[in-house]
C-alpha cells in the first residue's frame, strides 16, 4: 500500500485528507501512461497538466482523453 495515492475517486481522497488529493495522484499516473496523455496541447503544457487543472478546479474536463489518462 503506497498510501492514499491508490484511491482513484477524487471525492474519497478529499474526504480522507485534504493534502493528498487524487488530482495530484492521477497527474502522476497520467505521466506514466505516456504518448497521448503527455502530448503537448499548448506550448509548454501537456494534456496531463490540463486535466489536472480542470480536476482540481472541479470543472468539466475540456479533453475527453482525461478519463483515459487516469482522471475520474
Amino acid at each position: 500500500m503506497k498510501g492514499l495515492g491508490w484511491i482513484h475517486t477524487r471525492n474519497i481522497a478529499v474526504l480522507v485528507c485534504g493534502l493528498l488529493t487524487a488530482c495530484n495522484y492521477d497527474t502522476g499516473e497520467c505521466y506514466v501512461r505516456g504518448e497521448s496523455c503527455i502530448r503537448e496541447i499548448d506550448w509548454g503544457k501537456t494534456l496531463c497538466a490540463d486535466c489536472r487543472d480542470d480536476c482540481q478546479a472541479k470543472r468539466p474536463y475540456k479533453y475527453t482523453e482525461c478519463h483515459q489518462c487516469g482522471f475520474e
Binding site: E40, D42, G44, K45, T46, A49, D53
Partner: peptide, 8 residues
C-alpha cells in the same frame, strides 16, 4: 507551474 506549463 499552472502559469508556466508543467514542461517548464
Amino acid at each position: 507551474l499552472s502559469c508556466t506549463g508543467d514542461l517548464f
